[in-house]
Structure formats: C-alpha cells, structure tokens
Amino acid sequence: MMDGTSATAATTTGYNFAYLDEQTKRMIRRAILKAVAVPGYQVPFASREMPLPYGWGTGGIQVTASIIGQADVLKVIDQGADDTTNAVSIRKFFGRTTGVATTERTIEATIVQTRHRVPETKLRDDQIIVYQVPVPEPLRWLEPREAETRKMHALSEYGPMHVKLYEDIARYGRVTTAYDYPVMVDGRYLMRPSPIPKFDNPKLDMCPALQLFGAGREKRIYAVPPYTSVKSLDFEDHPFTIESWDEACAICGSTESFLDEVITDDKGGRMFVCSDTDYCGERRKESGDEPA
C-alpha cells in the first residue's frame, strides 16, 4: 500500500545514483558499519562538500545517500513537519538524484531523515532513521578541544558532564537542558541525540529501528543499533523527566504529542498544534475530521 508515496519521474542526469560517487559511498558505508559495531562512538569520516550548505543536513544527506536503494521509500522531516522548506529541499534533492519514492507517512517509509524530531508514530524494526547532527560531541561545550574529548571518551571520563548537570540542579532546581539532552548508549558512550527536544529522548531507548546520525561539517557518523539501551543522564534524586503541556493540539486534540506554539495575534493570543504533521493528519483522518 503506497497511496501516500510519489515517485519522481526524471532524475538529474550527469550525476551518480544518490549523487555521491561510489568510492565515497564505500568510505561512508565502512564508517556506518563501524558506527553500528561501536554504538554511540563517533566515527570520523571524510565528509564531502555537498550541494547543500554545511549545517543544513549534509551529514544526514551523506548517510541517506549511502544507504538508499531503488526499493526504498523516503520520508524527510524538519521540526517534525514534511513541508518545512529545508525538508522539501532535501526530499527534492533525493527525488532528483535517485528517483526513489518519497512519502509523508511515517508508516510507509523505509528511511526517515530527520532534523530535530523523532516521529510520534512508533518506528518498526524494518525502518532506519537518519538524524541530521550539527554538533556531534556531547562534551564540546565543556571542552572545546577534540584531542581532549577523544581521551575523555576513551576513558569513559564523563564526570564533568554529571557535574555540569548537577550544578544546574543546585542552582535552578532542575537540569536546564531542554533539547540535545545527553544520553548514555549501551552504558558505554556518552552521546548527543542531536537537537531533538528531550521529550523525544525516551523514543531512542530500545527503539526497534536502526538509528544513524550524520554530522557533515564536523565529519562524524555514529549509530544506535535496534534494541539498544539509551539512557538520558539523570540522578537518583532528580530523575529525567520530559516536558508536558497544559494544552491539547488545537487541530487533532492530542495530549500526547510534542506541541508547537503558534502566535495568533499581537495581543498574547496563541495556540498549540502538533509538531509532527503526519501524526496530526492521521489522527484527524481517523476521527473523520479530515482536512478539506
């Protein structure tokens, strides 16, 4: 059932399937296998200049380009939505360079490339999610030097991160990190989940789908295999919690999804709607309140 998918007829000629040359794909594929074998460890790779700017998803794009095949169905989201301009642009890029089917429906996708969200719909074990990562190093704001952070990972020396979080608690009564909240992968590597809201962190834990992370500008690839423990850092007396809203989605009524705040006028009027547009649309369909 592929009713939500659309195939792009004409692919851009003059470039290889999925844009990258085969040697580059091999290099990235080798890096991906290492990343899967050492969950949470950031594998350095020779990131290429892509026809999209660094910082705009080039890492995710290189990962997707290296795994995607003709039978895949691709979904691209930014901020949870399929129709944000950068998501549209990246989807178009793959449409032009691969001709593979694309979809806006999470359940139809074999590969989901995302920036800043994990879909609300639970992922399956035949799916792969590719995260676009701006800064892969969880220790970077504590220690700017790569040579040093590399040593800290080698020795599992994550004390400074705990101290930083605990200082937050001492000062503000809570951890003040709201997104890109650090996690421990399989009890060994400290990892950045990319700038997803911490609301999404629990979805990474024991997720049935393979999770791949690509940082193009910083030239790192890392991975979380399916069914792998991913624990958000916390303390016994201050367990990890996720945010909640007093409001429900103004469109579908969901009280369980991550909500975006929309300013409706200049008098303080605002409303809240699902950030995951596919989830929201599906809920409206189910309730018979289908958009015109």
């Binding site: 700017p53 660094y54 910082g55 705009w56 080039t58 930014d78 901020q79 949870g80 944000t84 950068n86 920036r115 800043h116 969200r117 701006p134 003040t176 709201a178 997104y179 890109d180 700038p195 997803i196 809201p197 911490k198 609301f199 500008r217 945010e243 809203w245 991550f258 909500l259 975006d260 705040e261 950030s275």
Partner: peptide, 22 residues
C-alpha cells in the same frame, strides 16, 4: 563556517519551544 553560521536561519521552533517551556 558560512554553512553553520547561516543554518541559524533554518527553523528551530521545536528547540525554541522546548526552551520556552523551560
């Protein structure tokens, strides 16, 4: 450098919402 500086104009409203709540 140019890519990363200019990526700040991409939507960040999910992150911003998370910060807003906090």
């Amino acid at each position: 450098a140019s890519g990363f500086v200019q990526h700040l104009k991409l939507p960040h409203y999910v992150d911003f919402q998370a910060e807003l709540n906090l």
